[in-house]
């Protein structure tokens, strides 16, 4: 089909959808719709992981991001019951600051991507690096120290959240 393989077609469609939904997240007026578009974006990205034969990552991405974090987001937004009437007025200066920060992030991302080597598209589907066994081996052998550091970081965040959540500290 037009000189592309099925994988390339899937990649193209998924990328298009992911970018489109990501734009919808930003442009939709209703915060609930934004969250739902974000969930769709996550699904598209999970599709990309599947294309890379990283099933573990894809499923964890759905389970953690779409299944847990976005549910919490939705939960909070529903509780706050945001709608157009109660939308806070944004001052001009906050808009300027947001624009500057967003622009800086863009610069960083573009700079980071420019530094990477050209990704070889032909390797799709042949890599086993995303499978659970290989991932676990890499995490617990080569990257054991950073992994444990991350877990300690998460633990401290957990303890901090509990401390904040407590009514009074004796």
């Amino acid at each position: 089909m037009l000189g592309y393989t099925i994988t390339q077609w899937t990649f193209g469609i998924l990328s298009f959808l992911a970018i489109m939904f990501a734009l919808m997240v930003v442009f939709s007026r209703n915060p609930i719709n934004s969250v739902l578009y974000l969930v769709l974006t996550f699904f598209c990205i999970a599709g990309h992981y599947l294309l890379l034969n990283a099933q573990f990552l894809a499923v964890v991405h759905i389970a953690v991001y779409a299944g847990a974090i976005m549910v919490l987001f939705l939960f909070v937004i529903m509780l706050m019951n945001l709608n157009q009437d109660s939308e806070p007025q944004k001052t001009a200066i906050s808009k300027v600051i947001a624009g500057v920060i967003g622009g800086l992030l863009l610069v960083v991302l573009v700079g980071a991507l420019r530094g990477t080597e050209q990704i070889n598209l032909t390797q799709y589907g042949h890599s086993d690096i995303g499978l659970v066994k290989n991932l676990g081996r890499v995490l617990f052998h080569e990257y054991l120290f950073p992994f444990e550091i991350v877990s300690i970081l998460l633990l401290s965040a957990l303890v901090g959240a509990i401390m904040i959540g407590k009514k009074e500290i004796k």
Binding site: A66, A68, V71, F75, L131
Partner: peptide, 25 residues
């Protein structure tokens, strides 16, 4: 036979709540 079936199961059950949440909201 997904080789990450157990996590897939967790993922699907956690997505299941969207039906309820969207319906309720």
């Amino acid at each position: 036979d997904i080789n990450v079936g157990v996590i897939f199961l967790l993922g699907v059950t956690s997505i299941g709540v969207y039906g309820i949440m969207i319906g309720g909201w």
